[in-house]
């Protein structure tokens, strides 16, 4: 168990270090998110949405920005291994699930960093305020995890295919559609302060995350070793 964690941690640290050297994924995510945010804020701004529509529309826009930023950068961790030809070495030196855990952690951290920058900016630029901060944070974290676990699987699938960038989005989006709906509703509930709405959404997101985790544990080795 500890050995597993240590090895996964090693994969994670390696990815983190490589990422810091070039900062490609972080830049892609960050730039995309900020550009989209600027566009949304400039065209719509904090005042142009009617008061009753605000919870829902602001929640929807937030998650759409996050999702599309995720599409811009979350496949990097696998694609980079193939491009730099380090994949075979990784396959030899680590168990598949160790690789999976390490890269999942990497994607999750990447998403968290993105959200840590994006959400406060969004709140400032769009006048987005939540009644229940704790609920909102839970939704963000749970959503981030489920998003990461799903995209990690898809990234592994497309890593050795052609037209990878577009394929990543095409494959991820259908799988993420239910998650998107749950997260938007949970965020809206957080804005309105509805504890029931938040818990409904959290239950759905967590169970989706759980299912995806189990499926990933079973199927990732198949994909990785192919």
């Amino acid at each position: 168990m500890w050995r597993f964690l240590a090895e996964a941690g090693a994969v994670f640290t390696k990815d983190l270090r490589t990422e810091f050297r070039t900062r490609v994924a972080l830049n892609a995510l960050g730039l995309f998110a900020i550009t989209t945010l600027a566009a949304v804020s400039y065209t719509i701004g904090p005042y142009r949405i009617a008061e009753n529509d605000r919870p829902f529309l602001l929640a929807a826009l937030l998650w759409i920005v996050i999702f599309f930023a995720a599409m811009a950068g979350l496949d990097r961790t696998f694609v980079k291994e193939e491009d730099t030809h380090t994949a075979p070495l990784l396959r030899l030196s680590a168990e598949p699930l160790v690789v999976w855990a390490g890269k999942l952690l990497f994607n999750f951290v990447l998403l968290d960093v993105l959200m840590a920058i994006l959400v406060p900016l969004y709140m400032v630029l769009m006048g987005f305020r939540v009644a229940s901060t704790a609920g909102f944070l839970l939704v963000l974290v749970a959503g981030g995890y489920t998003l990461a676990v799903t995209t990690t699987m898809v990234a592994a699938i497309i890593a050795r295919a052609m037209t990878r960038g577009a394929l990543f989005s095409v494959l991820s989006l259908p799988l993420l559609l239910p998650l998107l709906i749950f997260l938007i509703q949970g965020t809206r509930a957080a804005v309105e302060g509805s504890a029931e709405g938040i818990s409904d959404s959290l239950r759905a997101v967590v169970s989706l995350g759980g299912v995806m985790t189990v499926v990933s544990v079973v199927l990732f080795p198949v994909v990785w070793n192919e």
Binding site: V154, R160, M162, L175, A204, L208, V211, E226
Partner: peptide, 29 residues
Amino acid sequence: ALRAAIADPERRATMSAVYAILAFVTVPF
């Protein structure tokens, strides 16, 4: 789209099978 993007028949079969299963588990939700 996935099937079209993979040239090797065995890999194509494997990857699309995995994706089908991933999609299948999301359907109930």
